[in-house]
Design a protein around this nucleic acid. Structure first.
Lengths: 343, 343
DNA sequence: GTCAAAAGTTTGCGCGCGTAAAAAAAATAT
DNA sequence: ATATTTTTTTTACGCGCGCAAACTTTTGAC
């Protein structure tokens, strides 16, 4: 590596012994230049480590190679995990991902979309806030920029939606719980930040009735994304009232369940599937920490890899074809039942 | 909001009825134009919602308004939380933060620093991988770009380091554990990804000897950032051998402790400070989930806000003064003891 | 060796804005 | 009203590269 500093592509092209436009071609697609030329450039690249000015590049390209990744709440390991997958896929495909978190706030989501629009990205992978999204803003954005929605569906918005089949999640879990014990009651937030919650609740009700049982739903108070805390508080109230028709609780998601487990512990209840236990608790999501709770949490896990894989592929396809699908496409993945000792 | 699309600053300036350079001045500092002119521009801004092309802007500015935020592992809620603070501070100060995660991998950290360098950021807030960082790469980067290191210190690198006083953490916890029961043994990873671990271990040894006790250290096998799993596995081994000289365990960090708690549960041990418990377990970090473990985890918490606040302020100062501090500055914050029922 | 196709080069324009210098206009002071 | 300061406008150049058109060279097949 030489110490010399290369100012621009002109200078670098001179070092290579090729013309600037050829170097430009190389950076846009190394395969588009002859092998000998490529070798020359790459040898020079090792000696001088030059990188095209990203601002100059993006200013002139009709479409940048940027991809926006937006999640509603990055401090949730679930989204952190998905974001990691997506980032990796984008890089592998030769794009430059930019990661954003709305931190659960509408005005931040709006700002992010604004920033993103001005970045002229090739496409965007967006997990919207959902219930607290500004629908018209998201809608307008999706019209302007090729966008794949994931995790949270907003009906009619975006070209593609990729997510999990929430009714399948609850149905599978209800069946399992009934089969191995008693029918569960359902524990959820009264005003959940995520729209999947509604579908899970509906799925629970349907599954229960199908099995010939009466559904029972308990709603915890609380706003925002501090789901564990909401679960703990709500759990305490629920356990204190002691009017549960069933000693089996299906929580709307794992983070609520983690809070609920904390409440059970505080109340001195033994949680688990075994005979000598007081209560069974199950969650939904396959949260990264669900295997380290005490007891380990029985849950239905998202197919993280499939969701991120499919989201990325769908976006790449849209970008390559340079036009949006005629009709909105939805792809839902089944979850996998993970039986642990909590239920 | 008019439907008309503004192409560039020229057009927008025409709509305002002022010249383009004046509009440019406005965007660089709204206070630098006369009140009347500012009003004109802002009125037009409401009607046309124009935004300067970020690529064109950054190409010509000597220094961009971008700030890079790099963390070693975003799926760790600790870093997600810090990143959230930092992002907010940057935005409030008028900068554009870009968030990156090294995902625990050296080659990714190197790539990120490369990308960052080409973004010509005003400054960077960097929590390096630490033990697995490529020292020379990080060092070179810090020479090129104003950088504040946080969380993980790499001796002699960066203009400023902001972090926690690890010896104070362990010392405070050791004192507490001794005072309220028996002297703890120390549970850590044999090859921790984070350099803070070494200081904590040293702090443990010093504190124990100062209290007149012999330190006992147990090292769990395992590589990488799956700390809970390492803690669980190592915990199982430790508990099975049953050669612990003390029934009080201080874990090197909360994530290890969460894994250790899982191991205790699996072994049927009652964890807690109370008389009828089998074992006491404490952690270090104040992990966001530490209050939802069963039992809730006694720990020493980082002063998240102070660390992020100070990191951001230090960077902003460097940026404004346009020159680096003569000597490397270090600022360490004390942790806060959080007494819960696990120890 | 000839020739068409593929790859590379040259030339030159344009992107949208920062920025500097000089001139003009407006605000403030005298 | 005049002089002075501050603000704005005009003019002009440059940033680093994408991109297109026309031209030249190389490649590989016959």
């Amino acid at each position: 590596m030489s110490g010399e500093k290369i100012k621009n592509m002109e200078e670098f092209a001179a070092k290579c012994g090729v013309s600037r436009p050829t170097v430009s071609k190389y950076f846009n697609d190394p395969g588009s230049v002859r092998a000998k030329t490529r070798a020359r450039i790459e040898r020079a690249l090792e000696r001088f480590d030059y990188r095209p000015n990203i601002y100059a590049v993006n200013q002139n390209r009709r479409l940048t190679k940027n991809i926006g990744i937006v999640v509603p709440y990055l401090a949730d390991p679930f989204f952190a995990e998905i974001a990691r997958f997506l980032e990796t896929r984008c890089i592998a495909a030769g794009f430059s991902p930019s990661l954003f978190s709305s931190h659960g706030m509408q005005h931040l989501e709006n700002e992010i979309l604004d920033t993103l629009r001005s970045m002229k990205p090739a496409g965007v992978l967006l997990a919207p806030l959902g219930r607290s999204s500004d629908r018209s803003v998201v809608e307008q954005f999706c019209e302007d920029v090729p966008t794949v929605l994931f995790d949270s569906n907003i009906e009619g918005i975006g070209d593609v939606f990729v997510g999990s089949d929430n009714p399948q999640f609850t149905s599978m879990m209800v069946q399992y719980l009934c089969r191995t014990g008693e029918p569960p009651c359902f524990f959820e937030m009264k005003t959940p930040p995520n729209p999947n919650a509604r579908k899970r609740r509906q799925g629970y009700q349907d599954a229960m009735r199908q099995q010939g049982h009466e559904p029972h739903i308990f709603e915890a108070e609380g706003e925002g994304w501090a789901l564990e805390e909401v679960g703990r508080r709500g759990g305490m109230q629920l356990l204190e009232k002691d009017e549960m028709p069933s000693r089996t609780v299906l929580c709307s998601n794992d983070r609520l369940a983690i809070g609920f487990l904390a409440a059970c512990y505080e109340k001195g209840l033994r949680v688990g599937i075994e005979k000598d236990c007081d209560i069974r608790v199950a969650g939904l999501d396959g949260h990264p920490f669900s295997s380290f709770t005490c007891p380990p949490l029985t849950t239905v896990s998202h197919d993280y890899e499939a969701i991120s894989e499919r989201s990325a592929e769908a976006l790449f396809a849209m970008i390559e074809e340079e036009n949006r699908p005629a009709s909105r496409q939805e792809k839902l993945f089944d979850g996998k039942l993970i039986m642990r000792s909590s239920a």
